[in-house]
Amino acid sequence: MPELPLSQPSQRSDASRLESGRPNSAGPIIDFAPDVSCLDVEGLSLAYGGKPALRDLTLRVPRHRVTAFIGPSGCGKSTLLRALNRLHDLNEAVSRQGSIRLEGQEIHAPEVAVDELRRRVGMVFQAPNPFPMSIYENVAFGLRLQGGLTRRRMNDIVEWALEAAALWDEVKDRLRASAWSLSIGQQQRLVIARTLAVRPEVLLLDEPASALDPISTLKIEELIRSLKSQLTLVLVTHNMQQAARVSDYTAFLHDGELVEYAPTASLFTNPRLARTENYITGRMA
């Protein structure tokens, strides 16, 4: 894994020390150079009906890496994730300040079509939510929305997406079967395949394995690692082992604030702040 350029020359050396596990003197929050950053969150505050959920959050998510958000429940990690593809638009009680930029472009700008944004920033939810259709139709769903595909091309993309989600071998003989006939683990991979089929640049995963058994969890984790060569992944998880196993960078959120953000190895082995340490050692729920 090549090291990423950080935003300030002075921090570059810190980062390299970080990655090799040495203490970081530059502060608890890592920052990346604009040219490696895929998502820039700046001064983001979110409130549900007046109750603040995120407070003045600033962080950058690096391209082609897996970034994990961890923190106790209610800390705002899922809220932040959902803000990244504007799913909060559905809820009128949510008010927002601050900006989020995808590849340098403000996603709340009036000229941005929200459906196009959501296609570029795909999302996988905690509970698998396949549509009540066949396996094939589930994967083709997003493609059909865009239209203009020949049947053969569609078949190719569906096959590719299912292969990318490591599901092809299990379902290739029953593509017409109902998606609800799959096991929960398979359903979750189907949902990932469905999302991959529209070729997002970013994939947001909201506790994607929390409803799954250990073997399915392992498969999803493998999948996440294999996908980062092609897109940027952001993972929300309450499972710290999982964050440690799959992510490159980890952000620890608490009470709507970003507490610490560092390369995963360094955050777990050598947290800079006591709050972080308390959490990852289990002294704080």
Binding site: G147, E163, S229, Q230
Partner: peptide
Amino acid sequence: TKPFPASPA
């Protein structure tokens, strides 16, 4: 995984 197929219209 294999690379992404080309983008559709």
